[in-house]
Write a protein that binds this DNA or RNA. Structure first.
Lengths: 226, 226
DNA sequence: ATGCAAATGTGCACTTAGTGTAAGAATGTG
DNA sequence: CACATTCTTACACTAAGTGCACATTTGCAT
């Protein structure tokens, strides 16, 4: 249960593959596949250890050993133990950005955002994201990693929105808008994650409701505390 | 120039003084004063080293040495090198929360927030905050610390808003509102910090304009890309 | 298949981070 | 001045993270 979802390869620790990656897309060659497998194995081991030993009560060595990989290899994939726990969150947010960029270009901005962000509530590994969200409350390190993941997603989405709206928007508008929208999504996830402890699918639609609700508040300028 | 601003003592690394601090307020006894001095000295040394050696190109040992303090003492005050750089940001955000809580209780929420957040644009060490804001773009570690500082401030402000509005608000509304507002302030700071490189006071009013601008957008539900 | 080039995994050594502990220096109090 | 408390320091230790050289695996052309 609760397999870890591993995105493309969001951030190899800036060593290696800096120059000639053959064709990252549509080329799951043996090498690429092995890398993804290793990455997933490490991420899963990290999550398992976080569950069993408690967040912050395990070492990078343990994760590496559990994943059947050398300590050095672990650090070739992740900067630290907490970062290995953000792969699910990264995939989640990556999907949000992708969904948004896939919306028709003539759709009103807010419609597109609501549609895209509501869609991600149907992600598989959602329960894992919620679990990590809750874990972060108790671990400053994990909290930092999560916040950073959201920040990176914000940058990506900001670029997408900017391209969508012609290219030369007021920077303040762009920053404030995307930041506010993601804050609403974050708030929705927090409310949803706090109310759920069983990892069943029935609660997935709840998250969508929360997201739509929060974005509606934003659209109304928070005029009604309801 | 650009003295580092040190707040009360936001987070001693959870050792010591867990039980009986005599009277933290209005009692700058010799001990309290010495602690604040040490804290300030360390923070200033960290900032100086960040400026001279570049962000991330200095060690905790260097900071301790520069501050005339043992390595162990450094870690008694801060968890790491980056955290020593967040004291200014912490003070800045702390002031924001304080200003907000000082607003009259019958003032409309948005008015109070705009007034409070605009007021902090007049802070002394503002230029330092902008400097750190820019530094964070190049240093993932500093970025994490900054984000975490904002997150802590968000929690504090959320509590203040909750108390102000009766106590039993819709959690989603509370989370989304405060998150969105702070995102706007962050956006304003980013725009302001990016446009300023000289640490002169003339740009302070610019920040206030940016903040008011962003919060106005928020109040209008971002209906106008202007 | 064979051989070669590139990419990946691993062991080793090293610097730095961060923490527990006990002893010493400074401060508040009577 | 004596005493309790709090802060600082030195020491030792575990773990984080990284550079480097070498072994292994994979891709590809012959």
């Amino acid at each position: 249960m609760s397999a870890v979802f591993v995105p493309g390869a969001p951030e190899t620790p800036e060593t290696q593959t800096a120059s000639g990656a053959p064709a990252p897309s549509a080329a799951p060659s043996r090498r690429e596949q092995n890398k993804l497998d290793t990455r997933r194995a490490i991420a899963e081991s990290a999550l398992n250890l976080a569950r069993s030993h408690g967040i912050g009560n395990f070492t990078a060595d343990q994760v590496a050993a559990d994943a059947g990989v050398s300590r050095r290899t672990f650090f070739n994939y992740f900067h630290g133990a907490e970062e290995a726990l953000t792969t699910s969150t990264d995939a989640f947010l990556e999907l949000a950005a992708a969904e948004f960029m896939a919306r028709p270009a003539d759709e009103p901005l807010f419609e597109a955002m609501i549609a895209a962000l509501a869609a991600i509530a149907k992600t598989e590994n959602l329960s894992v994201c919620g679990e990590l969200f809750r874990m972060a409350e108790e671990s400053p390190e994990l909290m930092r990693s999560q916040l950073h993941a959201w920040e990176r997603a914000e940058t990506r989405i900001r670029q997408a929105v900017n391209e969508r709206l012609g290219g030369n928007l007021d920077p303040l508008y762009l920053l404030a808008l995307v930041g506010a929208v993601l804050s609403c999504v974050k708030a929705a996830m927090q409310v949803w994650a706090a109310a759920v402890d069983e990892p069943f699918a029935a609660s997935a639609s709840d998250l969508e409701d929360q997201i739509v609700g929060a974005l509606s508040m934003l659209r109304d300028g928070f005029s009604n505390p309801s």
